[in-house]
C-alpha cells in the first residue's frame, strides 16, 4: 500500500441504463504503466475520465497516494496530465502559442523549454505555422510536447498513438519510458502493444457487459 500511488477501488459507472464500469479495480505504482485494453465500447475512455475526475463514478473511489482524490481534486489535477482522443489545440494559434497558453495555465514555461519540447517531438520546422495547417499526426506530436512540458507525475493517455506514423509511435514509447524512469506513472488506453519494458507494464482488460 505504501508503494501504491494510484488505485481504483470497485469503480461502477452507469450511463443511463448502461452499466459501463462494473466494479473495476486496479493499482499502479511509480515507474509502472497500466495499459487498459478492450474492444470498442468497453469503457476505456470512461475509465480514464473517471480516474481523472471528469466523470463521477456512482460507486467506488480513486485513491492517489492513499487519499481519495475527491477530497483534494485541485491537488490531484495539479499532479496529472490527461490527453484525450483529440489534441487540445486551437486551430488559429501556432503550436508554440498553443503550448504557451495550454501549459502556461499550469506552470510557467520558458521559451527554451518550449523549444526543447518541440524539438523532442520533431516539430521545429512547423512550430510557427497555424495548427489548422497541420496534419492529424503533427497535431498529436504537439500534444505530446505539451505532455512532456507539464512535468507532472501521472499521465492519463487515451489512444496516444492515434494518427502517428511508426516513428511517432516509437516517440510515444520513449516518452513513456523516460517518464517511468523518472518515477512517473502512466495509465494508457491503447489497442496495440506499447514499447515499454515488460517489468514496468501492467494490463487491465475491460470486457463488454
Amino acid at each position: 500500500m505504501s508503494d501504491c500511488c494510484l488505485q481504483g477501488e470497485n469503480l461502477h459507472l452507469w450511463r443511463g441504463a448502461r452499466h459501463v464500469l462494473r466494479g473495476v479495480h486496479f493499482s499502479v505504482t511509480r515507474g509502472e504503466c497500466l495499459q487498459i485494453t478492450g474492444s470498442n465500447g468497453t469503457g476505456k475512455t470512461s475509465l480514464l475520465r473517471t480516474v481523472s475526475g471528469l466523470m463521477y463514478a456512482e460507486e467506488g473511489r480513486v485513491l492517489w497516494d492513499g487519499r481519495d482524490v475527491r477530497k483534494d481534486l485541485l491537488g490531484f489535477h495539479a499532479d496529472l496530465a490527461y490527453i484525450g482522443h483529440e489534441p487540445p489545440l486551437k486551430a488559429d494559434l501556432t503550436p508554440r502559442e498553443n503550448l504557451r497558453y495550454w501549459i502556461g495555465v499550469r506552470r510557467p514555461v520558458s521559451r527554451d523549454e518550449e523549444d526543447q519540447a518541440l524539438h523532442r517531438v520533431g516539430a521545429d520546422s512547423w512550430s510557427d505555422r497555424p495548427v489548422r495547417t497541420l496534419s492529424a499526426g503533427q497535431k498529436r506530436r504537439v500534444a505530446l510536447a505539451g505532455l512532456a512540458l507539464m512535468a507532472v507525475p501521472l499521465w492519463l493517455l487515451d489512444e496516444p498513438t492515434t494518427n502517428l506514423d511508426t516513428e511517432g509511435q516509437r516517440l510515444v514509447g520513449s516518452l513513456i519510458e523516460e517518464h517511468l524512469a523518472a518515477g512517473g506513472l502512466v495509465v494508457a488506453a491503447i489497442h496495440h502493444d506499447l514499447s515499454v519494458s515488460a517489468t514496468a507494464l501492467r494490463r487491465l482488460e475491460l470486457a463488454r457487459e
Binding site: W64, D65, D79, A151, P153, L185
Partner: peptide, 26 residues
C-alpha cells in the same frame, strides 16, 4: 494541496522552474 513523494520525482527530473502558475497569471 498535498504533494506525494512519487509526485515529486518527475517534477525534479524536469528542467527549469516547476512552480505552479498563480491563479492571477493563469
Amino acid at each position: 494541496m498535498h504533494r506525494s513523494a512519487a509526485a515529486a520525482a518527475p517534477r525534479r527530473a524536469g528542467a527549469g522552474a516547476l512552480a505552479m502558475t498563480s491563479a492571477l497569471a493563469a
